[in-house]
Amino acid sequence: MNKPVFYTNPQSRGRIVHWMLEEIGLPYETVWLEYGTTMKSSEYLAVNPMGKVPALTHEGAIVTETAAICAYLADRFPEKNLIPPLNHADRATYFRWLFFAAGPLELAVTAKTLSWQVPEGKNAFVGFGSYSETIDTLEKALTPGPYICGGQFTAADVYLGAQLGWGLMFGTIEKRPLFEAYVERINARPAALQANRINEDYLKSRKS
């Protein structure tokens, strides 16, 4: 089996995929890219014409977009138990909230961060409706716990947990006790800690 090749930058959403790869626990190759130079090289544009990270190549397949990479890895390595079993009710829950995080949640947070205002009466035109509705819906979904699919930690938690963690850190998502407890719980996972160490060590090496 060919090792996945992972293209990333330590100051990017690639950290989410790095965490996912560590959860998978199989060998992979990391290609570190820099903004404006190697990320825009002809070699990398052949992988991702948008010239952005992360991206993953594996056994002839190219996957871009962070949520898609997480979903691909969970599906490709089901024995790692990062996706609910086929035909299990939690499978639908998994897809629902993984793509809720990649769609409504990310757009709602982006709109709030950039002070984009949805014109009055036009909420139906945007996928998130409103920031408050999105955050309230997420809190309700996480309330049963301990993970978004109940007792099973999945790739949806990797993606959602990273989004929530960044939002709480930078103040773009309001602090709520349930959010803080969820992020603290999943950030303590060995794979999350290891992925963070790898990225921080690389950042330090660039400065030395």
Rank of each mutant, 00 (worst) to 15 (best):
K52G: 06
Y35A: 14
E59K: 09
K52P: 03
Y44E: 02
P49K: 00
A61E: 12
T37C: 04
L33I: 08
L56G: 03
L45E: 01
T30R: 14
Y28A: 05
E43C: 05
E29C: 07
Y35V: 12
H58V: 04
I16P: 07
T38I: 06
Y28S: 02
S42V: 09
G36D: 05
Y35H: 14
L56Q: 04
M20Y: 10
L21A: 11
A55R: 01
V47A: 03
A55C: 04
G51L: 01
E23G: 11
T37S: 14
L26C: 03
V17I: 11
A55Y: 03
W32N: 10
L33Q: 08
T30H: 04
V31T: 12
L26S: 09
Y35K: 15
M39S: 15
V53K: 05
L45F: 00
T30G: 06
Y35G: 07
L56M: 12
V47P: 02
V31P: 08
W32K: 10
E43N: 11
E59N: 15
R15H: 13
L56E: 05
I16Q: 08
T57G: 02
A46M: 03
V47M: 01
V63K: 01
E59D: 15
T64G: 05
M39P: 02
E22L: 08
L33S: 07
G36Q: 05
M50D: 00
V53T: 06
K40H: 07
P27G: 09
P27W: 11
I24A: 12
L21E: 08
T37H: 10
K40S: 09
T64Q: 06
K52N: 06
N48T: 00
L56S: 02
L45P: 01
W19T: 10
P27C: 10
P27D: 13
W32M: 14
T37Q: 13
A61V: 12
H58Q: 06
T37E: 13
T30A: 14
E43S: 13
V53W: 04
M20G: 05
P49D: 01
G25I: 10
R15W: 12
G14S: 06
A61N: 13
K52H: 06
